[in-house]
Simulated scan of single mutants.
Amino acid sequence: MRAIQITQFGGPEVLRPVELPDPVPGPGQVAIEVTRAGVNYADTHQAENSYLAPASLPLVPGSEVVGHTPEGRRVVAMLGSGGYAERAVADPNLTFDVPDNVDDAAALALLVQGATAWVLLRRNVRLEAGESVVVHAAAGGVGSLAVQLARAFGAGRVIATASSPQKRKLALELGADVAVDSRAEDMTAALIEANGGRRVDTVLDMTGGRVTDESLRALAPFGRLAFYGMASREEPRPVRPANLMRFSTTVSGMWLPHAFLLPGDVVGRAMTEMFELVGAGKLRPVLGGEYPLSQARAAHEALRSRATTGKLVLDPTR
């Protein structure tokens, strides 16, 4: 089969097209003929071995695929690796049937980005009706869905941040009340101003560095910040417990694989709810572009440049 393989860690240049044997399903695993593979920012960390879960070589990257099982089911699945290929194997507990009215790219967007946004809002910050929510990188895969889900969940004010006028326009079209330039010199002041002079209740942050530090300072008493990525590759300052108590704030982290371990099939419930919202026209996954499998390197370069909008996918037939 055609696949992308990494034999040394590094930047996008380490992604190489190769021919490999088809993966063989183990006991209880599901075989999938891949029609599209998702590209995530975490894949760029995996390629350079800077991700939360250490990688080993050789490696076929890719944590999500959509396609068909030998029985003809159309499914979307979460993988540990192996997604950048024509065929993959998956755990049935991490595999979800896709409704006919949800296309491949949309299903992929919902699996990682959508589930991440859902868990952040429902489990991390526990957004309550009427509260304000800041969504950083609001035109990205997670951010574009988080803006819409926050609105659907009853947020009182949705504040988006993005790096360009086009991205801020998109965030407003998706339901944000106001869009802030993510390069603002003082993010604390910018967020408070965007919230009508009031401190904000919740923040979803995947940027790191200065943005995280200044977002924390914008939180109202009992405000919550959920940290789920570090696109800037800059560490924020250490959080002092005394400051959490002084301002009655909460800081949490979230890594989606842990959500699959929660009782009650949390990710399954998230997928069901989001599929229904898509079918009802109340949730629109933003699709950022499709690349041939052979051009996985170009997809990573585009993602790392932060020039993309929405979900990127690879087509293994090309």
Results as ranks from 00 to 15, higher is better:
Val66Cys: 09
Leu170Glu: 11
Val211Tyr: 07
Pro165Cys: 06
Arg304Glu: 02
Thr116Leu: 07
Arg122Val: 04
Met254Gln: 11
Thr44Met: 12
Val178Cys: 12
Phe275Cys: 00
Val178Gly: 12
Pro58Lys: 05
Thr188Ala: 13
Pro316Ile: 12
Val278Lys: 04
Val98Thr: 01
Pro263Asn: 06
Leu225Asp: 09
Val76Ala: 02
Leu79Ser: 01
Val266Pro: 05
Ala298Thr: 07
Asp265Trp: 04
Thr202Ile: 00
Ala115Trp: 12
Ser232Tyr: 02
His258Glu: 13
Glu128Gly: 07
Gly223Arg: 01
Gly82Lys: 03
Val147Ile: 14
Gly310Pro: 01
Ala155Lys: 11
Ala152His: 15
Met274Gln: 04
Ser248Ile: 00
Ala155Met: 12
Val278Ala: 00
Lys167Phe: 03
Ser63Glu: 14
Met78Phe: 15
Ala218Met: 06
Glu290Trp: 09
Met187Pro: 04
Gly10His: 12
Trp255Thr: 08
Thr95Val: 13
Gly156Asn: 07
Met254Gly: 00
Ser56Arg: 15
His300Gln: 15
Asn49Lys: 10
Ala117Arg: 09
Leu170Asp: 10
Glu193Phe: 05
Arg217His: 13
Leu191Ser: 08
Asn124Ile: 00
Leu94Met: 14
Gln46Pro: 01
Arg306Ser: 06
Val30Gln: 13
Phe153Lys: 09
Lys282Ile: 00
Arg217Phe: 12
Ala299Met: 02
Thr272Asp: 15
Leu303Lys: 05
Thr249Pro: 10
Tyr41Asn: 05
Leu79Met: 05
Tyr41His: 15
Arg87Trp: 00
Val18Tyr: 10
Gly83Arg: 08
Ile32Cys: 07
Gly114Pro: 06
Val142Ala: 10
Ala231Gly: 07
Ala129Glu: 14
Pro92Tyr: 05
Lys311Arg: 12
Pro70Phe: 09
Val65Trp: 00
Gly209Cys: 06
Phe153Gln: 15
Asp177Glu: 11
Leu219Gln: 09
Ala106Met: 13
Thr212Asp: 01
Leu287His: 04
Pro257Ala: 09
Leu52Ser: 03
Thr35Ala: 14
Ser81Trp: 06
Tyr291Pro: 01
Ala296Phe: 06
Ala3Val: 04
Thr250Asp: 11
